[in-house]
Design a protein around this nucleic acid. Structure first.
Length: 427
RNA sequence: GGAGAGGUGGCAGAGUGGCCGAAUGCACCGGUCUUGAAAACCGGCGUGGGGAAACUCACCGGGGGUUCGAAUCCCCCCCUCUCCGCCA
């Protein structure tokens, strides 16, 4: 959520920003709603003041004065009630309008849609196989590492059972990522896999409604989380932090649940787009200046790169264009790993995502900070990034490290946890 | 899941219908005193909304209600603690 005052003071900028992000907005209406809201608040405050005054007179009033004061008090009460209900309607509208507005955008972020993504750098050598490489679906079924049929039977299409070495791989990747982020100074958490609606909304997710990507629990205000970003951000909801405790680094291991509504058809094969997966997520709270949050953003991307380098997986770093940023992000860097089994003869596929959300999430979550020098509080900046999303990383790992005999080489970094150098081909 | 007790400012803790945005203590900040510090004393010390400002309004876990008037009474929910049951 953006600051209302800021929006009204910078209407042109906001409209331009919405346009480049492909979001329709109605700033004049917003300004009008705000004006109405102010008027109602002023009127309501005055009514309440009169109400207090009247109420205060009553104990001291003579028995002759009393009935008329009580009568006046009753009138005020009903006027206050009217004022409040009108105000509530206006605020609901205002809030709806406000929720549609995306965050501001980093001046260097490329403007446009998916096709305008900028490749910032690439790492690693795309493997050249002297045999016909298989995709992860074929590899995993040949090696008895996955069971899609049972997944579909138990929970429906898009769910799966990992088996045998895939389980070892999942645990190894999690261990590796956890060790990595801990070394980088992140406090470790396992998080709730469910979160309340207010936390979802605070983080910028829409838990209900036709467009939602979120599973909701019936008869409750809980939803399954789509990422640990949600509980990690919600963790400090409504808190005022001391600036000396920033930047704060937290990392969470959780399951992620996504309905993937409308996602069928594109790259739906295998474990690329699934309803549930395991992920280690980094999250940061920084002081509210771009220098601090941009620096943290670089830190996160750096860790992501180190992880994929250690896994010996070629990747490219994408500067996500404005049309693809989503609501909360000010800037977003994605890692796309090379996936030899994707497309005709291999393609890059998204494996991580790192966002600087500036104060957009903090404003709605009510996460502030203060210092001893200045009076008042400010909203912190929040950032999030994937350390490892198990299914996507597993695809890249398996497809890149497959060998001619159908076996899969385990990169050095994971061997101590997988307990083997190679996943042997089944004879 | 059942029974009970609770949730008040950074913390502790008073307050059971009007004089309470809230005593008091601690912590914190400024001052006096002191060579310096401590102690003592004096003063300050929550967050947010609205307003150009004066100023005003809201907030005592959250939401509703009763009342001229609610931290205080009533209802629902959330959370914490103790005991019992169940359970990985």
């Amino acid at each position: 959520m953006l600051d209302l005052q800021f929006i009204c003071d910078n209407a042109d900028l906001i409209e331009k920003n919405c346009q480049s992000r492909g979001v329709t907005c109605d700033i004049p209406r917003l300004i009008e709603l705000r004006k109405k809201r102010s008027e109602l608040i002023v009127a309501g405050d005055d009514l309440r003041r009169q109400q207090k005054e009247t109420a205060a007179k009553i104990p001291k009033a003579t028995s002759e004065e009393r009935p008329s004061l009580i009568e006046f008090g009753k009138q005020l009460k009903s006027q206050v009630a009217d004022n409040e209900s009108t105000l509530k309607e206006i605020e609901t509208d205002l809030n709806a309008e406000l929720s549609r507005l995306p965050n501001l955008t980093h001046p260097d972020a490329p403007i446009g849609g998916e096709e305008d993504a900028v490749v910032l750098r690439t790492w690693g050598k795309v493997p050249e196989f002297d045999f016909e490489p298989k995709d992860h679906v074929e590899l995993m079924s040949d090696l008895d590492m996955v069971d899609f049929e049972s997944g579909a039977k138990v929970a429906g299409s898009g769910f799966y059972f990992l088996k045998n070495e895939a389980v070892l791989l999942e645990l190894a990747m999690v261990q590796f990522a956890i060790e990595k982020v801990r070394a980088a100074g992140f406090d470790l958490y396992t998080t709730p896999d469910l979160a309340r609606q207010e936390v979802l909304e605070g983080t910028g997710y829409q838990p209900r409604g036709p467009e939602t990507q979120i599973y909701s629990i019936e008869n409750s205000d809980l939803s399954l989380i789509a990422t640990a970003e949600i509980p990690l951000g919600g963790m400090l909801k409504d808190q005022i932090l001391d600036e000396s405790s920033l930047p704060m680094r937290v990392a969470g291991l959780s399951h992620c649940f996504r309905t993937e509504a409308g996602g069928h058809g594109k790259a739906s094969k295998g474990i690329y787009r699934v309803h549930q997966f395991t992920k280690v997520e980094m999250f940061g709270f920084t002081t509210p200046d771009l220098e601090a949050s941009n620096e943290f953003h670089q830190l996160i991307v750096g860790i992501e790169e180190e992880i994929f380098q250690a896994l010996e997986i070629p990747y490219q770093v994408i500067d996500t264009p404005t049309g693809d940023l989503g609501g909360p992000a000010y800037r977003k860097f994605d890692l796309e790993a090379w996936m030899p089994g994707r497309g005709e003869s291999g393609e890059y596929g998204e494996v991580t995502s790192a966002s600087n959300c500036t104060d957009f999430q903090a404003r709605r979550l009510g996460i502030r900070c203060r210092n001893n020098e200045e009076k008042g509080t400010k909203f912190v900046h929040t950032l999030n990034g994937t350390a490892i999303a198990v299914t996507r990383a597993m695809i890249a790992l398996i497809e890149n490290h497959q060998q001619a005999d159908g076996s899969i080489r385990i990169p050095e970094a994971l061997r101590k946890w997988v307990g083997m150098d190679v996943i042997p081909a089944k004879s």
